[in-house]
Write a protein that binds this DNA or RNA. Structure first.
Lengths: 328, 328
DNA sequence: CTGAAAGCGCTTACAG
DNA sequence: CTGAAAGCGCTTACAG
């Protein structure tokens, strides 16, 4: 247990330097001694202490992944891609669920700093706050940081952002073009991302001279069903609803059907994210594809470049597109 | 950037020992010097190197979480709970997606060993293999390991297992009791967990004197729809189907409806896992609740005890229950 | 109450 | 081709 290179050195009858050299495949070791050391390494199931190694090399070979909650499907793609990608380069991923508060988020950044991660990824617009910005300035002022769906004006942080504003505006315009005149919006939690969606909705609706109706639903299918029912009873003229999240659209569609409305004939529905829910639901959801996969891949590739060249920075905006299925 | 306690010591006009003592809240430091050091620590945004600290203390304060793919909802609850729980104790979580091969799984265990994690959790029955067992014996022979939904006869590995065998058998018995006589099973990928489910199905069906029909579907809603359609056309007498995974049940239910079958009147359907899909789907799915949450909580609590007392070990079996909704 | 020294497990000039 | 020594950033006896 806990063999060190000194133990290996003793068993092989060489010095620790030599053991270190064969472990790191340094040239200039006699073939026979290299082979002997390798054999002993193998027979002993030796594994180098990355911590000790990191201390001398001034590297940790770790990257930090911050999400608010990994159980949220939306965070999972990015976390997966980053881990897979960097593991191949010998990096390990520290995953932190930062939670819903600024304290949790700032604390998480401190933790990553203590662990001396060589780079970090923030996944989700909820990290867009002054507290997080300050924590980065104070504790991660010089390692590459990539912000998935958010932006900080800091020279070490890159971003890959979904243009939810225009994605939502385009959805409104599409509904208008297909004859809808009473387009409502059902929002979820107040996040920077959702604010962009609502702003896009409001802009398009205003430009088209339509009225604006915005409701807020609890973030569950059932909550959305309730909200949808209230909306329809107070505004029976509603002929289209856009939802900030696919799951809400699923709940809403189901309730409309239960109320005897036809979807999409009476009420068209558009969700957001093109999540698995959108194809599983019945009827299948039309949705604003916010290109989560592309966003994650972009983060991963930015981070890769930034790891090579720590002053590298990039800002990418990904355009959503409308996916039409059975609810429009 | 990269301040050490020596830098802080210099700024405070004390020795590194003293700085270390105040960082670690050791007693016996004059109040005034403690306060001065604390102030400088704060003003400098100092954060201790956990790696260096770990080297001297012979601890890493890291725990390893192995999943085959974090994008799989099924792995996410356990990963979340472990991270949340141990972060409070000052631990960080290393998340590894081990992939679908024994090489990937064994490699992941080696990586965790290199990082000197103090404990590890394997999430998912797919880790049930000789290769993984051997990797644990070779590289983690003495740290606490908790296996979620699997078992190794090793003195350092605990387990929390869902009794999918009897869960599935009970579902068959329930269907029989409600008059179904042609109960089919639609399986997914070949995993230890799915093998237990199939075995439970076969046993119950045999005991009840019913025929056994087992199909294998691709692991998507669409794949399951196809398989379901084939099943129904070759065995039109089928009056109930159990699916190894909720998602497959959703796809199957939808196809049955499209084919003009009534659910549950013509064909009853039971999924497995009581996943979010089961309440979102239309109609809402009856399902075998494999108690994922309870399983994860159990792992977390076992691990907690094992961290305190490294020789602690526990084996828990969690009984699934049947959740009846609209498809039975 | 405080500091100098040794040591955790490595790597890497520097000698030979 | 190989080894002894120093040093990475900490903590903790040991002195004083």
């Amino acid at each position: 247990m806990g063999l060190t290179i000194y133990d290996i050195a003793k068993r092989a009858g060489v010095s620790a330097s030599t053991v270190s050299r064969v472990i790191n495949a340094r040239p200039g070791i006699k073939k026979s001694t290299r082979e002997k050391v390798e054999r002993i390494l193998r027979e002993s199931n030796f594994s180098v202490s990355e911590a000790a190694r990191g201390l001398v090399n001034q590297t940790s070979r770790m990257i930090g992944i911050l999400v608010s909650d990994i159980r949220n499907q939306h965070h999972t793609e990015g976390a997966y891609m980053i881990e897979q990608h960097f593991r191949k380069k010998g990096y390990c991923s520290l995953l932190l669920n930062a939670g819903d508060t600024d304290e949790g988020r700032a604390e998480s950044i401190k933790i990553l700093s203590s662990r001396r991660v060589e780079a970090a990824v923030l996944i989700g617009s909820v990290f867009q706050s002054d507290a997080v910005r300050k924590a980065i300035e104070d504790y991660m002022p010089s390692i590459p940081v990539v912000f998935q769906n958010g932006f900080f004006d800091l020279q070490n942080v890159s971003s890959a952002i979904a243009d939810e504003f225009s994605g939502t505006a385009d959805a409104v315009r599409y509904l208008h073009k297909t004859g809808r005149r009473h387009i409502a919006y059902i929002n979820s939690n107040d996040t920077p991302s959702n604010r962009k969606k609502v702003a896009g909705y409001e802009k398009a609706v205003r430009e088209l001279g339509l009225g604006s109706i915005i409701c807020i639903a609890e973030d569950t299918a059932e909550g959305s069903a309730e909200t949808t029912e209230k909306l329809i009873s107070s505004h029976p003229e509603t002929d289209a609803i856009i939802y900030a999240v696919d799951l809400l659209a699923v709940g809403g569609a189901r309730r409309l059907l239960d109320l005897g409305k036809r979807v999409p004939e009476d009420v068209a529905i558009i969700g957001t994210d093109n999540s698995p829910f959108s194809t599983i639901s019945n009827p299948r959801l039309s949705t604003i594809d916010t290109k989560l996969y592309e966003l994650s891949a972009t983060c991963s590739s930015i981070l890769e470049k930034a790891i090579e060249n720590p002053s590298y920075t990039e800002h990418v905006v990904v355009k959503p597109s409308l996916v039409l299925r059975e609810t429009t």
